[in-house]
Amino acid sequence: MKNNYVFKNLANKEFVLGTDKQDIFFNMLDVMRKGNLTLFTQSFSDLVYLLEKDSYYIAHHLIVYKGKKAIFAGQLVRAFKAQLIDFIQHAINHDDLRPFLISSIFSQDYKRVFYLTEEGFYLYDVK
């Protein structure tokens, strides 16, 4: 399965490549799997105030399997908060919101992850 989604509307992005991409994505996914759902909303504006850091990772949530091994097949980029908010707002307004995982770049343990879908917006954390 080829993923052609490349975050073209996200300004000033920096792609994360190689094993870092896999590690960061699966760390984010672990927070969703093992963490607590602390917020669910259907309004993106309810999450904006929770984006407290200046820089974030955003990953297209796309996993493929090779045998029993899970492989992250999406793209992972670094972006500044202002551009990230503009990107998400544009995607919502143009009915192009994909499943995304978002976490702070400066969070060493990826303790807080935002999960965005067409159905709603979720916040997971691990304490």
Score class of each variant (00 low, 15 high):
residue 6 V to S: 14
residue 6 V to R: 13
residue 9 N to I: 02
residue 10 L to H: 04
residue 15 F to G: 10
residue 19 T to G: 04
residue 19 T to P: 00
residue 22 Q to V: 00
residue 22 Q to E: 09
residue 23 D to Q: 14
residue 24 I to W: 00
residue 25 F to E: 00
residue 29 L to M: 05
residue 29 L to Q: 13
residue 30 D to N: 13
residue 31 V to Q: 02
residue 32 M to A: 05
residue 33 R to M: 12
residue 34 K to D: 09
residue 36 N to K: 11
residue 37 L to Y: 03
residue 42 Q to P: 00
residue 43 S to Y: 08
residue 43 S to P: 01
residue 44 F to Q: 05
residue 45 S to L: 06
residue 47 L to K: 06
residue 49 Y to T: 13
residue 50 L to T: 06
residue 50 L to S: 07
residue 52 E to R: 13
residue 55 S to I: 02
residue 57 Y to H: 13
residue 58 I to K: 04
residue 58 I to A: 02
residue 59 A to Q: 08
residue 60 H to T: 05
residue 60 H to A: 04
residue 60 H to C: 06
residue 63 I to Y: 05
residue 66 K to G: 05
residue 67 G to S: 04
residue 70 A to T: 05
residue 71 I to F: 07
residue 72 F to Y: 12
residue 73 A to F: 05
residue 73 A to L: 03
residue 75 Q to I: 05
residue 80 F to P: 12
residue 81 K to I: 07
residue 83 Q to D: 15
residue 83 Q to K: 08
residue 86 D to R: 12
residue 88 I to E: 08
residue 90 H to E: 12
residue 91 A to R: 14
residue 93 N to Y: 09
residue 94 H to S: 15
residue 94 H to W: 04
residue 95 D to P: 00
residue 95 D to G: 01
residue 95 D to F: 07
residue 96 D to G: 01
residue 97 L to V: 08
residue 97 L to S: 01
residue 100 F to G: 10
residue 104 S to F: 01
residue 107 S to R: 03
residue 114 F to M: 10
residue 117 T to P: 03
residue 120 G to H: 10
residue 121 F to V: 08
residue 122 Y to K: 14
residue 122 Y to Q: 13
residue 124 Y to M: 09
residue 125 D to W: 03
residue 126 V to K: 15
